[in-house]
Each structure stands twice: as structure tokens, then as C-alpha cells.
Amino acid sequence: MTVLFWILAVVAVVAGFAVFRLNSMAQVTFALLASFLAVAGLVMLLGLGYLGVVIVLMMVIEMVIMAVFMVMYMMNPAGLMPMAMYHNKSGSMAIAVGTFAVLAAGILLTDWPTRRGAPAPDQTFALGEALMGGQMLTMMTLGVTLFATIVGTVVLATARGRYDRFGDDLDRRRADDPAGGGPG
């Protein structure tokens, strides 16, 4: 267990650091995936098997989709245009190290309370019961937020909708279509 913890924790942190060290933004995506998978392993190690698997499935799919977008917006494609992808590197590093120092001090100096209670035998059941019972409001809020995200992202990502082409009252005879063509 301890060995597994150390391996996973080191992989998580090193892969996380590689995200901002690798040159190819496609490789970066998979470094981030490695970090997520290591954290999913740690979550499983803590007895949350279901959530660990959920994280693995979600992050594998998310990072593969992300890789496509990374290629779309890639700086320095295939290493052909070497460039610095940073700004204010030293200031950022100082802030990050400072944040870590403060967090670490808090972690090591806090007098943590002793463990109270024991985990339920079936964590998946307990989580499902919580989400469908006491935490129902959380679940519903998440659902509505996800729906709002779907609508918002589609609105943001579409170049134009039918109302843009035919005017607000749909009274324009020909589509106001900058690119020409189309059914209008």
C-alpha cells in the first residue's frame, strides 16, 4: 500500500510538472492524463473504487477530446516553430512555490482531528444513496449546470444561427451570408 502510494503520488506530481515542461501540446495532453490516472489510482487506494473508475473513464475520454483541440490550437506544431510559451515565468514560479509553502506549512502544522467512524461497507451504495437522498439538491444543481453548459458552449461555438442569417424577425429575403452559398 505504502509503496503503491509513493509510486502513484510521484507519478501524479511528475506528470503534472511535465505538462508545463514538454514542448508538444499533444504530449502535454497525455502527461495530464497520466497525472489524472495516478490520482484516480490514489482515490481507489482510499477505498473509493467507483469514483476512481469514473475519474479514469471521464479523463481518458476528456483528454482524447482535448488532444484534438490541442492540435487545433497548437503552438510550435511538431516542433517546427520553436517558441517560448510563457509569460512572467519567474513571477508565476514564485507565486506557485509560495502557495505550496503556505499549504505545506498548514498541512504539517495543523493538529488534525482523529479519525471518526468507519467507511460504509459499500461505498458505491452509500454515494448513490446520498446523491439520490440528502444530496439531491447538489445533484440537481449539477444537472442544471451541465445543461446550461451544453447550451452556452453551443451558442459560443456556432459561427451563426438561423436568426443571424435572416435577421432578428426572420424577414430578410436573402440570407445575410458573408461566405455565400448555402440554402438561403
Binding site: 506530481v13 501540446m25 497525472s35 482510499l46 510563457y86 502557495t99 499549504l103
Partner: peptide, 23 residues
């Protein structure tokens, strides 16, 4: 565990502050 989490958080903060590219 919390130190590892703090490390991940700090590295992420460094990236969010220092990277040029929005993605």
C-alpha cells in the same frame, strides 16, 4: 496525501499563471 495534493495545486497554479496559450 495532502502534500501531494498541494504539489499538484501549486504546479497547476504555476501553469495557469505562466502559460501564454489559452488552452
Amino acid at each position: 496525501f495532502l502534500l501531494a495534493a498541494a504539489g499538484l495545486f501549486a504546479i497547476g497554479l504555476y501553469g495557469a499563471l505562466s502559460q501564454q496559450s489559452i488552452v
